[in-house]
Write a protein that binds this DNA or RNA. Structure first.
Lengths: 158, 158
DNA sequence: CGCTTATAATAAGCGCGCATACTATCTGAG
DNA sequence: CTCAGATAGTATGCGCGCTTATTATAAGCG
């Protein structure tokens, strides 16, 4: 070793938490894709459909509210919800009180599909994190700390 | 509570490791995007450029080899490398021994940019995981276990 | 009341991460 | 040597995640 080609990065990317996070997230999404394929849903479609199913009973959902609940950006939410509407899993009608907004409701087909898909998703999720065993709880705690700690930073930079 | 709208999913998605993983990965990519913006690089471009810089001194890189080293799929690798070539950060010449393959080399501009960008990336990375403090090591270990444990499963399903 | 500011949704467009399919070439078994 | 199967790279196309910009409307302030 005369002169390493890059500063730091001591022994390749294998130990960088960010690099690993990226790889794991990709692997997880492949898993989810496979698990959701029988239902012809993508992961984002599932998240929005499931969350809408969950909250539609307790409040009148708008796209913006749903985006906030799921942590999906409003642009993507708009696009994905239109796909869900085209598949007749949800309905988007003009909001009774705010003509700018759309009121989101879930059709019976949507509810039924969500109920079936959520089982497959949670199964795939459990299988993916199974290698951690009981440490999974610890991972969840770390994840929550990361979200907490970075939410603030992101809000600052706006 | 008369009848929950969905089976399981006991108290919303906030505790699902997969859901958290997805949110965190998105947040991390936003951070990386911001950190790399001054260099006009995307995350994938950086990873491929940095890895090429790292390994080009020790072996004759092909796209397939680079894809394998980075864990990026070959199709994306092809596309991203062409972007890097257009930016004159790498070169793709016909491989001397295998006419199917391209030999990848990094230009001086590419090396210089990689050297600068890697600092910004590692800084952003450190800031992102800072909330975990010394537990970061534990997270890395969990990540490695997850990759290990799921690599096998994915290979099986092919 | 009028006016500024914030908000709901969308159009257009970019790059990644795939899946699928195709061409050209290498490699190994017989 | 031949030929089947693996491999390197790419075209095409889809959906997400995001940026920027636009339209329409709501909400707050003087």
């Amino acid at each position: 070793m005369t002169k390493p080609p890059l500063p730091t990065r001591l022994s390749g990317p294998a130990e960088s938490p960010g690099f690993l996070l990226w790889k794991i997230s990709n692997a997880w999404q492949r898993r989810q894709r496979a698990a959701l394929q029988p239902y012809e849903l993508t992961h984002s479609q599932f998240v929005l459909l499931a969350t809408a199913t969950w909250f539609a009973t307790s409040e009148t959902l708008t796209q913006a509210r749903l985006a906030q609940l799921c942590g999906v950006d409003p642009m993507t939410t708009s696009q994905v919800l239109r796909a869900l509407e085209a598949a007749q899993l949800i309905q988007r009608v003009d909001h009774p009180e705010d003509p700018r907004a759309k009121a989101i409701s879930v059709t019976k087909a949507g509810r039924d599909l969500a109920r079936k898909a959520v089982v497959a998703v949670e199964e795939a999720d459990a299988a993916f994190f199974a290698p951690l065993g009981s440490d999974t709880k610890r991972l969840v705690a770390m994840f929550q700390a990361l979200i907490e700690g970075n939410e603030r930073t992101e809000a600052d930079s706006k």
